[in-house]
Write a protein that binds this DNA or RNA. Structure first.
Lengths: 327, 327
DNA sequence: CCCACACATGGAAGCGCTTCCACCGCAATA
DNA sequence: TATTGCGGTGGAAGCGCTTCCATGTGTGGG
């Protein structure tokens, strides 16, 4: 009851009748230990409510006590993206359970050294790279081996977690086709982001299957770009009857651009986005989109890093169509 | 160049020709030190690029290495509020500079002990309480004295940082009056949140000055509640010609509710919000609102905690009217 | 001229933990 | 029975830092 003095590993060892070394082995799960002492230590841990001191552990294992979230982008403004906010929130939530904190960093797209510099300092326990590029991921120092994960499409070397853009896009574009649209344009993500490629592929495939011709305009996941893209699209292909943007933010911008042009949605042109952000349901017309389990993805990435799990390889999370008014 | 081995305090002491004790005193700024050794150590620190190991320091000072962000609310859903996301992002950014991480926690509104429990564990270097209640703030254990700050209106005991709701509200409501509205309703924040009181006061004052009668409906900062509030308001006071919500999210909901009712905005009813979130500019009609420098406020709170500054007392940040289409 | 007192300083202890290493007893092999 | 091997174990070192304490140094007053 009156804890007052937080239990230390010494207390646990004493209570279990073993040495501190053995207690440590049991608690960390590293090294040999007989079933008998394993049981006794586990019991003592529970009885005393022992929680390892993260600082002490970090000190000796030379492993930081912080999970860094690094976002790659042209400017520091990427940090303000609601998507990043969701990643951060979810990661912070997971980290909190492990008595670990998270910190947020911007990695300039054209400064490959920045990641190495970030990872160089002490105190870094793990790294989650958001929207990584190949070159960036290649500069991760080996001191962080096994403690790096990617949110978005990564490389073979680090576990990566992403939404299934391919089937998500497929679902949305098919929906557009089903509802009678055939001249469908697409606003992509930034060209340097590999995850967009799969989406574009899927879009091309559906269009090919349905006999439409692809109309692709580059985007950057921002709303402003969406508005401009809408204007571009309508100027270039005036008969366009649907626009699919690989980001709700961009789709909202498209809505804006179309509105400025006097084009009715969904009357003249249907609009669909991707991500299902909160505001997709609050825009007028309500945005048809595809879900993006960002929180789940970020939590998985954080856990992979924190647990030093060897989950190399890519994991894709399903995306589901959400039909509202815009398409 | 080839750092390889991160400099330790020992290296600094050796380079400066003093003992580790003296070097520590200079680096931390605690304890006496002659100007001479002060200079030599500072030079050595710069030359070696020394950065104190947060874990080691935390271990001995028995002070955590993590800045906890605690949000009070009925359910854990408060953590998904974009406002919290902005606070977290900004705090994480500030913390990163100090080699510190942040973690996110939900404090059940009716479980006063939860804050104490959170602060009890080791590894907690500081605490920022978002939207604190008096009782919650009173349970902060003394072990955290001087390392707690509030985002929102706090108590006399901890430094608090908030937007100037009073003048912000004043600005918005006055704008409504100026543009010819006189039957203005207000959707407040949660009743247990003291910050809302000042806003309601300001609203009442403007209405009193302009001869209007107050129409207050309780809100909770969510969009759904906004939609319901809109319906409530129009049912209770059908001649209402303006609605002011103390949150953009709620205002967006009001827009939705009004739309469902077939009420035109701003034709029939003007709508104004508070916060100026990203989506305030993307809704249709664009939301008239008042700015809320959340990032600046959160950064100030984080800094106050991290620097153990004795900034007790409340600091209010100015809010500025942003006129768009909705009012 | 000497004592007291401040200030500056270095030695050393120790924060809570992991991990190397030497050691023990026991079964399997020779 | 004498060796080897091996899983289990505790002692002890040490991670990088702060801080207590005893030990110098220099000043002013008696």
């Amino acid at each position: 009851m009156t804890a007052e003095h937080t239990a230390t590993l010494d207390d646990v060892a004493r209570a279990a009748g073993v040495s501190r070394a053995t207690a440590s082995r049991v608690v960390t799960g590293q090294g040999p230990a007989s079933q008998h002492s394993r049981d006794r230590v586990t019991a003592a841990v529970a009885a005393l409510g022992y929680v390892p001191d993260a600082s002490a552990r970090a000190l000796v294992t030379r492993t930081g006590t912080r999970l860094a979230i690094a976002v790659i982008g042209h400017t520091a403004a990427v940090l303000d993206d609601p998507y990043v906010g969701r990643v951060l929130t979810s990661a912070a939530h997971v980290a909190a359970e492990r008595e670990v904190g998270v910190s947020l960093h911007w990695l300039p797209l054209h400064d490959p050294g920045s990641l190495a510099r970030l990872a160089d300092g002490r105190g870094l326990g793990g790294l989650v790279v958001v929207n990584p590029t190949r070159p960036a991921l290649d500069t991760v120092p080996r001191s962080l081996r096994g403690r790096v994960a990617a949110v978005g499409v990564g490389t073979r070397h680090v576990p990566s977690f992403d939404v299934d853009n391919r089937s998500g896009t497929d679902g949305v574009v098919r929906h557009l086709v089903r509802s009678g649209r055939s001249r469908i344009a697409m606003v992509t993500g930034p060209s340097w982001l590999p995850c967009g490629d799969r989406a574009v592929e899927a879009y091309r495939k559906v269009l090919h299957d349905s006999g439409g011709e692809p109309r692709v305009v580059p985007g950057d996941f921002t709303a402003i770009r969406g508005a401009k893209a809408a204007i571009e699209i309508m100027a270039r292909w005036p008969d366009t009857d649907a626009v699919f943007a690989l980001s709700d933010l961009t789709a909202l911008g498209v809505l804006d651009g179309l509105h400025a042009l006097g084009v009715r949605v969904p009357g003249d042109v249907a609009v669909a986005g991707f991500d299902d952000i909160t505001f997709a349901g609050l825009s007028r017309p309500g945005l048809t989109t595809s879900t993006h389990p960002v929180e789940e993805i970020a939590a998985a990435a954080a856990r992979a890093v924190l647990d030093r799990r060897d989950t190399s390889g890519a994991t894709f999370y399903p995306s589901a169509l959400v039909v509202r008014d815009s398409a």
